[in-house]
Design a protein around this nucleic acid. Structure first.
Length: 278
DNA sequence: TGCTATT
């Protein structure tokens, strides 16, 4: 364990466990606007060991995340009115901003439903747009499309009329629903512990952190790897990401494929076995 | 148009 290594982005779900390699995290919390649910651009991470928190500050303060530079410091040292850097893109973390969905309008929140017991994605997600017209456009544009690797087209429609527990009366909720059998049939069980995703067109300077940043918001990421040239140690232009849940992987692929990163346009798909090609 | 030589 020599250098800093890579960090996943702060997860907004208050989940415990290892979201990075700077030490054991007891809890973390993303602070959101009470009304809109949108990230206010800062959050808190509780480490089990104070020394780990110290190391995290040293490793992460000033870190560039995509277009932002984050500030990391002891909570009690933060001054009110201090200008915080924004954590990631508006709407993340805690929900994914999907390039493919994004083009239809401003996304307020998004989430993927997960079985509480098994942790397996239920194949259903919700995206809330700022304007109803944007949601309508998204339904028109995305319904019936088949994400890469999916056996069946996805269903995209307005969410069912809210039940008694509805928290979202003000906006235009949009449901993206995968066919229930998606994970179980056709593609079968993952080839190994998770789904391996191939990412092409990374810049030579890319490192693992960019992959964590890109894929982390979509769900459980267990591994990322940037393939480098042994001689130059520069990225060869591609890498791999392993995600636990099929639907989250499929949404990540559908969203990030064609995503512009700097001057490049990413190509993202499930990994294929490159062996026998016609 | 590219799919993993570090566990």
């Amino acid at each position: 364990m020599g250098d800093t290594g890579d960090m996943g982005t702060l997860r907004g779900q208050g989940d415990t466990g290892d979201t990075g390699d700077t030490g054991d995290i007891e809890s973390c919390k993303l602070v959101r606007d009470r009304v809109t649910g949108q990230s206010l651009g800062y959050g808190f991470v509780n480490y089990v060991e104070a020394g780990d928190a110290d190391r995290a500050i040293g490793a992460l303060n000033g870190l560039k995340l995509q277009t932002k530079t984050i500030k990391v410091l002891w909570a009690h040292l933060g001054t009110p009115g201090d200008s915080w850097g924004h954590l990631g893109t508006p709407g993340t973390p805690g929900g994914c901003v999907c390039a493919q969905v994004c083009q239809y309008g401003r996304i307020i929140t998004s989430r993927i439903l997960v079985d509480q017991v098994t942790g397996v994605s239920r194949g259903v997600g919700f995206i809330r747009f700022d304007k109803r017209a944007e949601a309508e456009e998204a339904v028109r544009g995305l319904h019936g499309q088949k994400p890469l690797g999916a056996a069946e087209p996805i269903t995209v429609k307005f969410a069912n009329s809210p039940g008694p527990l509805s928290l979202l009366p003000r906006f235009s909720p949009l449901a993206i629903e995968a066919v229930p059998t998606l994970a179980g049939v056709g593609l079968g069980t993952p080839p190994g512990p998770g789904w391996c995703i191939f990412v092409y067109n990374l810049s030579p300077e890319s490192d693992e952190s960019v992959l964590w940043q890109l894929f982390g918001p979509f769900g459980a990421v267990t591994n990322v790897k940037v393939i480098r040239d042994l001689a130059t140690n520069k990225c060869k232009g591609f890498g791999f990401v392993t995600m636990t849940n099929y639907e989250e992987a499929a949404v990540a692929i559908a969203s990030l494929n064609g995503h512009r990163l700097g001057q490049r346009v990413l190509q993202v798909s499930f990994k294929t076995n490159k062996q026998h090609k016609p």
